[in-house]
Simulated assay, not measured.
Amino acid sequence: MSIPTAKSDRFDVRAVVAAVQRAVGTPNGTLALHEPVFAGNELAYLDECIKSTFVSSVGKFVDRFEDMLAEYTGAKRAIAVVNGTAALHTCFRLAGVEPGNEVISPALTFIATTNAIAYCGATPHFIDSSLKTLGMDAQALGTRLDAIAQRKPEGTINRETGRRIAAIVPMHTFGHPVDMDEISAIARQWEIPLVEDAAESLGSTYKGRAVGSRAQFAALSFNGNKIVTTGGGGAILTNDEELGRRAKHITTTAKLPHKWAFVHDEIGFNYRLPNLNAALGCAQLEQLDGFLKNKRRLADAYDRAFANIPGVQFAREPEGTSSNYWLNAILLDEAHASLRDEALTELNAAGFGARPAWTLMHRLPMFSESPRGDLSVSESIERRLINLPSSASIQARDD
């Protein structure tokens, strides 16, 4: 895929800072990249939870939190766990990922996606991203599988490595949904399970439906910097009742129900979300619609502020989707990519907690030998992307 050239030879780092100031004003101190908002029933629910003495993985708030997630997303089951990485790890286990397998993943992702693959003893296989979505590129996925994949009785095999390709894991970068229809069609064509990494995208929709609501397996995160937080937490979404039951079982140390006996029928994980964290999550979910409204208003303010700035563009949600705009992002034109760090320095000096994209996974030493396709778009995004302050509490300017 070709990388767009600069729209203009004129580019001024100071104009980037001025645009952010037009959108959100001049901060008093530092405006964080993304911080939680506690403006509802958090204290009341935490107090109730503490007084109940049920503060670990059993209690009414865990059950309520799971029910609220299932209702909000439209998934049949939601299983609350300790973090998004644990949710992904469990999804991969349920999908049948085993030691010696490969899992196809974007190179542009947070390391949790790739670590969860490694926890299974599998190898990540990196695919390029799309400039439209910032997530896995369906065309790149199809091209790569056509080049290296072969159907055999034991599954889809990478002809170059001899390893079974056990799963495909698209991730909705910064809350922007990827092209799930095309990626799902490719997964079905090759009979490869799909695990949806929706860690950043609670509240985002794809063609009118919540992300994660159509996949056999999807993972959410409620880390302290997410749109809804439980302090640390995650969840597994599934539309398969039996898989939901099994997910809850293996994340509860695979313990068989009994009044007093400790019998475990397989290797499980101590991954269940504590009731204390779930109490916080219930209060946060009650406010999610308000968070989304504020964040979309902020995204619109950034979009207007950068509309006429040469050499830079604001990353809008893909057509046919609604993003939660978890993190707002701008992309410098390729010709100005060398000025990204200067722009980051100036933004942070002005009190804006801006940051670059993650280091691409294949550049990290533990994954440097992993198989990969052409990653030219991911490498371009990495060079020139800047995330801007995105908290739901930020009061965007209307002018």
Rank of each mutant, 00 (worst) to 15 (best):
L220R: 02
A199L: 13
E196F: 00
G232E: 15
A235W: 00
N225K: 10
K255V: 13
N225S: 14
V195G: 07
G212A: 10
D197I: 08
A235D: 05
V211W: 01
I227V: 14
A218K: 05
N239M: 04
T205C: 10
R246K: 13
A254G: 03
I227P: 00
G244K: 00
N225I: 10
G203V: 07
L256N: 13
G212N: 08
A219R: 04
A247E: 09
A235K: 02
S204R: 09
N223L: 05
A247F: 06
Q216A: 13
L202R: 10
L243D: 11
T230F: 11
K255Q: 15
Q216N: 14
Y206F: 14
L202E: 12
S201I: 00
L256W: 02
S221D: 07
G233V: 01
V195D: 06
T205M: 09
T205L: 10
G212H: 05
P193C: 11
P193N: 09
L202F: 11
T238K: 10
T253W: 00
S201A: 15
T253F: 05
L237K: 07
S221G: 04
E241K: 10
F222W: 11
E196M: 06
P193M: 11
S204W: 05
V228D: 08
P193L: 11
S221I: 04
L202Y: 11
L194D: 06
P257K: 05
P193E: 09
F217C: 11
A199D: 11
T205F: 03
G232Y: 11
A218H: 04
I250W: 07
L194M: 10
G212T: 08
T205K: 11
A198K: 04
A235M: 04
L243V: 14
R209C: 09
N239E: 06
G234L: 08
T253M: 12
D197S: 11
A235S: 09
G224F: 13
G208R: 06
G208A: 07
N239Y: 03
T229D: 02
P257S: 05
N239I: 05
G208V: 07
A215P: 02
G234S: 08
D197Y: 06
S213T: 09
F222E: 10
H249C: 04
T230K: 01
G234V: 05
L237A: 06
A198D: 13
G234C: 09
A254Y: 01
A219C: 06
G208M: 07
A198T: 14
N225F: 10
H249Q: 06
H249D: 08
K255I: 14
G224Y: 12
Q216S: 14
G234P: 02
T251M: 05
A218V: 01
P257F: 02
A199E: 13
T230Q: 02
Y206E: 02
A215S: 15
R246N: 10
T253N: 12
G244L: 01
T230A: 15
L202A: 13
G208C: 07
S213Q: 03
R209H: 13
S213H: 03
V195W: 03
V228W: 00
K207R: 15
E200V: 04
N225G: 14
K248E: 15
K207G: 04
T230R: 01
